[in-house]
Amino acid sequence: MDKKNIKKIEKEMKLANEGLPEKERSLFSDVRPTSVTPLNKYLEKFLNWARAESLWFLGFGTGCGAIELRPLMTSRYDVFRYGIAPRPTPRQSSVFIIGGYASMKTVKRIVRSYEQMQGPKFVIALGSCTINGGMYYDSYNTINRIDHYIPVDVYIAGCMPRPESLIAGFNKLKEKIKAGECDGMNKYAENFDWYKKNQKRVIKDWNMPDFNW
C-alpha cells in the first residue's frame, strides 16, 4: 500500500470527537483504544492470579443495587478477606459494579468511568435490571441490557441480590480471571464502533470525547 492510502486510513481511524465544540477538540485525544496481546503464558498466568486476588472495585453507586455494596465492607460480610477493596477513583480500580438499573444519564457516567479505568478491567452487572431491564423493562429513560454499552464479565441475577450473592459473583469473577477468560478490555477495543453506536443512540447530549482516557 502506498503512503497516501496509509495516511487516508489513519485519518479515517481517528476519532472525530464531534460532540465537542470545535475549539476544544484539540484538547482531547483522538486515538482509539487498541487491544493488547497478553504476555507469555506463565507470566500472564501469574499476573492473572494477582489480578484475581486483588480486586479493587469502583465505589460508585450507579443504581439502587449500590446499597448492597455497603454491607460488603462492614463487619458482617467483610469482603476485604477475599482481597476485595473499594477504591474511590476509576484510575486505580479494576472492577466496575453496575448497581442495578442504568438511566440514560447514568449510562453516560458509566461509559466515562469505564473508559477511564486502566485495563485489564472487569464488570459485574448486579441485579435483573442490567440483564433484561427487570421491572423497568418498558421505562422510557432506562436501558435494558447493559452489555450493549460496555462488556460484562459476570451477571448476578435477582432483585435485589443479597450481599452473599455479590460475594458469590466475586468468586465467580475470580475463577474466570484465573482461567484467563475475562478479556472485556480487548473486547471493547475490538468492537469499539459497535459499542459507540449503541452508546450514542441512547445518550442524546453527547458532549464528551469519543474515547475518555
Binding site: 499476573l47 494477582a50 489480578r51 486483588s54 462492614t74 467483610d78 476485604f80 478477606r81 482481597g83 486502566q118
Partner: peptide, 19 residues
C-alpha cells in the same frame, strides 16, 4: 472483621504493576 491477609500489600503491588 477478619481483615485482608497479611500478604495483601504484595499482591496489590504485583497487580498494579501488571496493568
Amino acid at each position: 472483621r477478619f481483615g485482608p491477609p497479611v500478604w495483601q500489600p504484595f499482591i496489590d503491588i504485583i497487580k498494579t504493576h501488571g496493568k
